[in-house]
Nucleic acid binder design. Structure first.
Lengths: 105, 105
DNA sequence: CGGTATACATTGTATCACGAAGTATTCAAT
DNA sequence: ATTGAATACTTCGTGATACAATGTATACCG
């Protein structure tokens, strides 16, 4: 798929992946894979960006003797998803401009 | 609207704007404005990229004593729009992952 | 003991949208 | 005739970003 198209989805997709349950890097990649595959370096960049923007918080927890970084969505992050839904209406409007067939399909 | 979301739409939008009728810079911006506003520098960058990719051709024509650069979509450009329609199916799949409400709306 | 999977991090690169600024012409108003 | 929009295109620099490559470290299994 076109990389550019992915760009707008990546951030919200990561937020969606941790929305219902805190998660960590490797797990997020696995969960997103069926929808949108991304490399580790990309994910960690995104997670850092979202943390800096206050859309998620991080806490380390031990798992099998190793530390894992768990990511938790904030209210701001939830709001970001809602904003995305609003943006979607515009996206659909643009989509129809692009695919405007002559009214017959 | 989120800039990142625009990115994947820009190229195809420009192609859509010249699909039915050759057009030129200023006119394209006007036609796209209701859907997606973009600056001149952005448009001309995109036009050059699309030309380099063989998705459109350029020819200068006189208009009111001045030269205008008219852009004409190629078969490759038309195919690009078709590809976008294919990508759209994936986008919808991802969209549903992001907005997955608990099956009740 | 060696290999594989897990888990996170850093660096460098290429792409890209955009603001800012510039050039040049037409046309209407002063 | 001069000014100032509006039209039309161009160039430069910047910041954001996705990603490959690479590195570190540990757990688990044979």
């Amino acid at each position: 798929m076109d990389i550019q198209l992915k760009r707008g989805l990546l951030d919200v997709c990561v937020l969606a992946a941790i929305k219902d349950k805190d998660s960590y890097g490797y797990q997020i990649i696995k969960d997103m894979k069926p929808y949108l595959s991304l490399s580790e370096s990309t994910l960690y960049t995104i997670l850092k960006r979202l943390e800096a923007a206050g859309m998620l918080t991080v806490h380390s927890a031990e798992h099998d003797g190793r530390l894992r970084k768990y990511y938790h969505i904030t209210d701001s992050g939830l709001r970001r998803i809602e904003e995305f839904k609003e943006d979607w209406k515009e996206i659909l409007f643009i989509y129809r401009f692009v695919v405007k067939e002559e009214e017959n399909e």
